[in-house]
Design a protein around this nucleic acid. Structure first.
Lengths: 385, 385
DNA sequence: GGCTATCATGGGAGCGCTCCCATACTTGAT
DNA sequence: ATCAAGTATGGGAGCGCTCCCATGATAGCC
């Protein structure tokens, strides 16, 4: 019997550094295990004398609590993951992630949670992460840029893992999310173009299998309706959020409807592509055609002329995601059961019906049961419109 | 006594999903705990019948092993961290990280390790991560873009955590690393310029408190020496790896030494800045001044004219880092002690004394005890030189 | 047919914590 | 002085695994 134990002990006993345990710290400080634990975790019910003694022992021994043991006993991992189901190429290309990351980090700064960024590029990596999460190596998960058919969010929620989406997958999103008011943003943009006297306002959409693209198109339409104009399918071209796609779409528009004098692009990158196509066609911006983008990214500022664009509060979205997640985690923690967990959808349905140009904001900010949030967008006016 | 237990059990018992344990799977399958463990971990000594029964039970119950318990019992976390001590802004701006990340992920693909990306922007975050690592939440750490005065690598090594650097901090790096042959790369670049008949070959260096910048400057000098030319301090300007810094440095050079007809820039970004300053001064590239950069990044290809640049095998560096790390981890694992762990420096000293233009490669590839690696660089010739 | 390798299996012990109950010691009000 | 109501503290139990020893079963050998 003793041998069984010896075999394992010798392994670590042979190592260079001792890696002390709670028990050893306790012995060193002349107190009980529980007391050391209390000190480590900042419990108030420890006398100053004792606390000092323990802290001294911890310092002398260079004690660091074993995370696995802690996680096992306490049932929490002290870490949250930010999952990006994209290639690193895309991750590094889109300024969106940088903003989200900044917000997330900032909001997480004064928690003791470790943030883990995880890229998921294929099924294999997805499964591995699902496993990791199911094994409770993290306490919560933030997901951004999730595609409509990605099963991961549901898998996570089903396994009881608190999760928050950055951006909905559809109008009937069931997982708690933080999103920006894409419909309203698009509507403001197009109303702006109409307000500047533009007659033939076209749009270049994103890929319509993405909800965000649907929303922006919906906003475009809503603005036209509000202005009493008819929708003209000739003035709707489809892109894929890339520069190249924008260029192609713009060429289409020029060919199909040469009278076009304004274009609302569902992303700055596409606007940049449109700009190229316009230059190619000898059309001036904004003289001949006014241009508005979406995202207010760096490219918008660097374009010539600088691009009017719809700004979404990306950093704030990151922060809101964290707040929502921490809320879910707290609920999960102290609920003896919480019924089906923090799942419950927002109950929302269809595209968020944004109202007027500015009035929407107030109501839109907070939504629904799960703590999901929709943040307002804003138009940044520059030379292109 | 029973109450103590009840209190805790009820917490999870009340939850929606049961979250079965090994023991329950064992009961379900009608086998012992050990057997289930064996099946989970793919031990060969399980009969097919039993294995099938266990697998069925696992599937029925939706069993997923608890990571914390596993980590505690087995002493490994099944995860490695990639640490980037930079702001997200820089992370996303430099294509370097994207390449490293690609290589790291690829090499890690068929291990079961989860990769965790961690940004460290301030001391607070550094301490938090150090804590996380000391708590053994990861089995190994990869660090890139580490500044010379960063204590983290040493902290990690000291706490017995396997760690590998991407890029040395100095010529006497004590932590295992993977680096590219910066001296040789710079030397090739400058030899190329000299070979093209350029007479006044200047250089724009990186920040000289970074070893990589020192190496590239050293390569520049080595090439001049090899060509029997004198070093002219007027032809050395200092940048900071940014575009703006490169522009400033180029202006200085033009003022100080108007006869300059070639510039080796220690980064593509600085070369891009230099290009701007040259255009500003009405100097043509390569007609008046030949330009060479370093990194062979996207900007190099997009410049006008396209930039000749020194390519480092970034992705391969990422892969090599992982291989080295896995090696260290294996050593750590099965060594009953391994003496002082995997620390042992490379014993190297001073700047890697690269020899001839191409001959170096072979010897340079593998170095030193700890498994540290220096990979060769290569010149990609384009229109700018 | 008896005896020793081999194989599959069960389950004890322990990983290093947290939780919480019980205990011992205070302090203050009666 | 006496008892109630804290306040600090010690330590048992248990978290869910892995490891490894012992055991029972099966097969192979002289």
């Amino acid at each position: 019997m003793a041998a069984a134990h010896l075999g394992r002990t010798s392994r670590s006993a042979g190592g260079g550094r001792p890696r002390p345990t709670l028990e050893q710290v306790a012995a060193r400080a002349g107190v009980g295990r529980g007391t050391v634990s209390r000190v480590i975790n900042g419990s108030p019910s420890v006398s100053d004398r004792t606390r000092a003694a323990v802290e001294a022992a911890v310092a002398e021994l260079g004690y660091v609590p074993n995370g696995a043991a802690r996680a096992l006993a306490a049932g929490s991992a002290d870490a949250v993951a930010l999952v990006v189901p994209e290639t690193e190429t895309k991750l590094f290309a889109e300024p969106y992630f940088s903003g989200i990351l900044r917000g997330v980090s900032a909001e997480l700064a004064d928690s003791s949670m470790q943030l883990l960024l995880t890229l998921i590029r294929d099924e294999h990596e997805r499964d591995r992460f699902a496993q990791y999460a199911a094994a409770r190596r993290v306490d919560g998960v933030l997901l951004v840029s999730v595609h409509a058919d990605d099963p991961l969010p549901d898998q996570l929620v089903e396994s009881g893992m608190p999760a928050v989406l950055g951006g909905r997958r559809s109008g009937t999103e069931t997982v708690p999310y933080v999103d920006s008011d894409n419909v309203d943003g698009a509507q403001i943009a197009v109303e702006h173009l109409i307000g500047r006297g533009r007659r033939a306002v076209a749009t270049i959409t994103g890929p319509l299998d993405m909800y965000v693209a649907q929303c922006r198109l919906e906003g475009h339409r809503a603005a036209l309706r509000a202005a009493g104009r008819e929708e003209d399918e000739r003035l709707v071209a489809h892109g894929d959020f890339t520069e190249e796609g924008g260029k192609r779409a713009m060429r289409e528009l020029l060919e199909r409807a040469p009278e076009v004098d304004a274009v609302f692009c569902a992303s700055d990158l596409m606007a940049s592509g449109a700009r190229l196509a316009l230059r190619e066609a000898g059309r001036g911006v904004p003289a001949d055609v006014a241009l508005v983008g979406f995202d207010d990214s760096a490219v918008a500022r660097h374009m010539d002329p600088p691009l009017t664009s719809v700004r979404q509060p990306i950093e704030e979205m990151g922060r809101a995601m964290v707040r929502t997640l921490l809320g879910l985690m707290a609920r999960e923690r102290d609920s003896v059961s919480g019924g089906a967990g923090g799942v419950g959808g927002t109950g929302g349905g269809g595209i968020n019906a944004a109202g007027g140009t500015g009035g929407t904001t107030a109501q839109a900010v907070r939504r629904a049961a799960a703590g999901s949030v929709v943040l307002p967008t804003e138009l940044v006016r520059r030379g292109s419109s």
